[in-house]
């Protein structure tokens, strides 16, 4: 199975780092065969996932570390978001009903709408959280850094 690593980003869990992260993700997805709208929504979903880590994982502690890996695996783009905060029970992470008009709680809904699938697990080191999000794509440029 072909597997290309499009980008690996390490960022501190600070809201001020999100814009830079989004620019990197947008750049990494250049040439991935995505339309502007699809790429924009993927960037939104990844940014929302990072926001959740900042707000709920590290609870606003800007010293926390986030690692984002973007991979092309076969016909999927895979986004692997690792944090080292307290491990959470995936069953507690749910989108809220949209018929409730209230501020907040839309991040997981956006991820669910944009990605083809996503799941939470524990990183290899046994500490923190690993969110794996996948999106089916038609074509990914084969010029990226090769991995394994």
């Amino acid at each position: 199975m072909s597997r290309n690593r499009l980008r690996t980003l390490r960022l501190k869990a600070s809201p001020e780092r999100l814009q830079e992260m989004r620019a990197e993700v947008t750049d990494a997805l250049d040439g991935a065969g995505l339309g502007d709208e699809d790429r924009r929504l993927l960037v939104l979903a990844v940014s929302e996932a990072c926001m959740n880590v900042i707000q709920h994982g590290y609870k606003g502690d800007p010293g926390g570390e986030i690692v984002l890996e973007i991979l092309h695996k076969s016909r999927f783009l895979e986004f692997r978001l690792t944090d080292f905060a307290e491990t959470v029970d995936p069953a507690t992470i749910k989108p809220r009903p949209l018929d409730e008009l209230r501020p907040g709680g839309l991040g997981v809904h956006f991820i669910r709408c944009v990605m083809d699938d996503y799941r939470y697990t524990v990183p290899a080191g046994g500490k923190g959280n690993l969110l794996i999000m996948r999106k089916r794509v038609k074509r990914v440029r084969e010029t990226a850094e090769n991995a394994m």
Binding site: R22, L44, M51, L101, P103, G104, L106, G107, F110
Partner: peptide
């Protein structure tokens, strides 16, 4: 050029 769920939340709060 970009708005996330926190921005949407600000609009919802204003609307309410």
């Amino acid at each position: 050029t970009y708005i996330d769920s926190s921005g949407i939340a600000s609009l919802v709060e204003g609307y309410q």
